Amino acid sequence: MPQLVYSTWGGIHLLAAVLSLLLGTAVLALPKRGLRHRQMGYAYVGGLGVMLTTSFAIYRQYNGFGIFHVAAILSAATLLAGMLPVWRKRPTHNWLQLHYSFMYLSVLELYVALVAEVLVRVPGLDFWEVAGASSAVVLLPGAVLFSRLRRQWEPSAGLAQRSV
């Protein structure tokens, strides 16, 4: 049976990933208002930041920079795109929807990474099979759920543009 963790960096990465999955899921599931949302949201951002940073210390898969490092860069860009509207309150007319949309995508990307991490350990699957399967398993149902949740996040649903 293969090892789950091969280094200290890998252990930190795994713990940060699990924490981020739990916090990200909770932030999406719980009400989007108040101190608890902010605290859990910033804990998610911090946990994901640690996970993304430590990913660059893990080279076992490709013996160097690989496709998962590219995914970490894209995930960091999604996270930043979700937080910039909160920090700047711009664009003024839809910063809140941008925040929710990109943060939702950030959590979805984390689940895609989880499924990919599991599938990459299955013998005989190549990268494109892993990428396709993990994306299909997470992104398709995630897009359907997003279209339903998005209606709740719009100002017409009672969520005013205010400080989150």
Rank of each mutant, 00 (worst) to 15 (best):
residue 84 L to R: 11
residue 162 R to M: 06
residue 127 F to H: 12
residue 8 T to S: 09
residue 123 P to Y: 01
residue 53 T to Y: 10
residue 78 T to L: 11
residue 109 E to C: 12
residue 47 G to M: 00
residue 53 T to R: 01
residue 4 L to N: 05
residue 89 K to G: 10
residue 72 A to R: 06
residue 31 P to D: 09
residue 150 R to A: 15
residue 2 P to W: 08
residue 53 T to K: 00
residue 69 H to A: 00
residue 115 V to Q: 04
residue 82 G to C: 10
residue 53 T to W: 09
residue 126 D to M: 01
residue 1 M to Y: 12
residue 120 V to M: 14
residue 136 A to T: 14
residue 88 R to H: 07
residue 31 P to I: 10
residue 76 A to N: 02
residue 58 I to Y: 06
residue 107 V to H: 11
residue 152 Q to V: 07
residue 67 I to K: 09
residue 4 L to G: 05
residue 79 L to Y: 04
residue 73 I to F: 12
residue 140 L to T: 08
residue 68 F to S: 08
residue 149 L to N: 09
residue 57 A to V: 00
residue 161 Q to C: 00
residue 9 W to K: 00
residue 159 L to Y: 07
residue 70 V to R: 08
residue 56 F to M: 03
residue 135 S to A: 15
residue 146 F to G: 06
residue 132 G to M: 01
residue 127 F to V: 12
residue 30 L to G: 01
residue 151 R to P: 05
residue 81 A to Q: 00
residue 107 V to N: 08
residue 14 L to G: 05
residue 32 K to G: 14
residue 37 H to K: 05
residue 31 P to F: 14
residue 59 Y to H: 15
residue 129 E to D: 03
residue 150 R to D: 12
residue 112 V to K: 10
residue 88 R to C: 04
residue 118 V to E: 06
residue 27 V to R: 06
residue 48 L to C: 07
residue 86 V to H: 02
residue 101 S to K: 10
residue 71 A to Q: 07
residue 103 M to V: 08
residue 100 Y to S: 11
residue 71 A to Y: 13
residue 163 S to K: 11
residue 113 A to M: 10
residue 88 R to T: 15
residue 92 T to Y: 10
residue 140 L to K: 02
residue 26 A to R: 11
residue 81 A to M: 09
residue 100 Y to N: 11
residue 1 M to D: 10
residue 112 V to C: 11
residue 126 D to A: 02
residue 64 G to K: 03
residue 35 L to A: 14
residue 139 L to I: 13
residue 26 A to G: 12
residue 156 S to C: 03
residue 26 A to L: 14
residue 118 V to A: 15
residue 120 V to H: 13
residue 114 L to Q: 10
residue 137 V to C: 08
residue 20 S to W: 02
residue 110 L to E: 08
residue 18 V to G: 03
residue 83 M to R: 08
residue 120 V to W: 13
residue 70 V to S: 08
residue 60 R to E: 14
residue 162 R to W: 02
residue 101 S to W: 11
residue 156 S to I: 11
residue 144 V to T: 09
